[in-house]
Design a protein around this nucleic acid. Structure first.
Length: 229
DNA sequence: CCTCGGATCAGCT
DNA sequence: GCTGATCCGAGGA
């Protein structure tokens, strides 16, 4: 049933891969311009493509960033050239970033994968897995590498919601999460755009208190206060 | 060496 | 909405 139209030369609006300049920009700009763009991963069984709908920025002055304390073996990809993939594993789950400037990157949080139901790739772990990305892709380039490309968003920048990032404790209040507005495949529609909410979260620290108890020695981190709440 | 805690997710109350 | 799974990197002693 597939009319094998190898006439790809006539494709008028075929998106083209972005170059390194795309990534060598302020990380927040890249995070926003990745919305609506597509990530293509070539594998043995063909290629998988996802339209990105949700991203997060991680910066150098950002205690939530894996690169905050400088290069280590694990995060060294974050100091690679713009467009480098930083793939890490947490709780046996793989997540993928694209490096912008040294020590900064954009976490790919959700997308709509071609041929899969919407919402299948909701969350960074699910997205990376749906794309077939593994820890072996860490350090590879999305510009010059063999496997991954970013295809520029064809149209104008979509309406974007901004809000706090998900799943972090430090710098949890910074509005560095971006998502396409009214996009059902976003992991959590609600907290976005509510950055101006006046609601205080006096009692919503259950997550924090749930984690392993800190020893009562001395009072914990110095200088790294999490906002003033 | 040991300890801590996590850029998550699935599953249960 | 909250908890456990599960393992490894990072950091301190």
């Amino acid at each position: 049933m597939g009319p094998r139209s190898s006439t790809r030369g006539s494709s008028s609006s075929r998106p083209r891969p972005v170059g390194r300049r795309f990534f060598r920009r302020p990380t927040v700009e890249v995070a926003r311009d990745l919305l609506g763009a597509r990530l293509r991963v070539d594998g043995p069984a063909g290629h998988v493509e996802a339209r990105l709908v949700e991203t997060e920025a991680y910066l150098t002055d950002d205690p939530a960033s894996h690169a905050f304390r400088g290069p280590t073996r694990r995060n060294r990809s974050m100091f690679g050239p713009p467009g480098t993939l930083y793939v890490f594993r947490i709780h046996q789950v793989v997540c993928a970033n694209l490096v912008t400037r040294p020590g900064e990157a954009v976490l790919l949080r959700a997308g709509v994968v071609e041929g899969m139901p919407p919402g299948h790739a909701r969350g960074p772990g699910r997205l990376a897995r749906a794309l077939g990305l593994t820890i072996a892709d860490d350090g590879q380039g999305a510009v010059t590498g063999p496997r991954v490309r970013v295809l520029a968003r064809p149209g104008p920048r979509p309406l974007t919601d901004v809000g706090p990032r998900v799943g972090i404790r430090r710098a949890a209040e910074r509005p560095l999460r971006f998502a396409i507005r009214d996009e059902p495949a976003v992991s959590r529609p609600r907290p976005l755009t509510s950055a101006f909410s006046t609601r205080t979260r006096a009692g919503s620290r259950s997550r924090q208190s749930r984690t392993r108890r800190r020893p009562a020695s001395g009072g914990g981190r110095s200088g790294g206060r999490i906002a003033g709440r």
